[in-house]
Amino acid sequence: MKEIEDKELKKLSIDNLTHLFMDNINEQNLKLIEGIEFLVQEDFDKFKKNLNYVIETNTEVQIKKKFESKIFKSKLMFSKADRLKLFNKINGIKNIGEFIANKMLLYKAVFPDEQFKHHILSILESLKNISNDLSKAVKLIGSDLSKAHDICEEIKDERRKMRNEEWQLLNRLYNYDMDYISRTFIYLKELIEDIMMLADHIKNFSEYIQFLATKYLIFD
């Protein structure tokens, strides 16, 4: 994502800054997922390029700073604290993504077999879906909390499916004829766990959006 001028950022509302920040983080998240897919395909150059992109990109910092200064002075009354929390939760995705990217770059593992690769790609596809869905849900908070709530329900369903796959994958990993203190074993185990950590954050985030919908929507 290209750099945005400070003047342009100044013109944006709190809502628009949140959307822009979400787009920025989602884009980085998708790059991370794509990078892991390259790792699965053993295309290490592209893998490294994508993960470095996640680590080095900092366009979101200026958006964050602008948002923080705007919300501090804003005259929004009762949703101010919730909007700030929402923004910090988006930022949490970036922090986790950056952590995963740094860790993944420490080593380049070769996957044990095609079945394992297939499972990982399936989990990554789900992660991509929930990441995109979360982005949609965040953008709907301002205009349609009910729809945002429904999308979050779908995220939670997808996350449930992912969890089953995660256990199957770990089970598979532990049953390979592999040295359990080998770097490959540790790397793959942590890769699965870190993907799940990111998925868990997205799930918790969607639960927070549902909390907001419950808090603010009034039904007759």
């Binding site: 009762f78 301002g142 349609d144 909390l145 009910s146 009034i218 039904f219 007759d220």
Partner: peptide
């Protein structure tokens, strides 16, 4: 109940809610 039926339940998003609460 009256305000929920005719106004508050019709507010869909946080922006609309915030505007009405102002």
């Amino acid at each position: 109940k009256i305000s929920a039926k005719f106004l508050l339940s019709r507010l869909k998003g946080l922006n609309q809610i915030e505007k009405s609460e102002k």
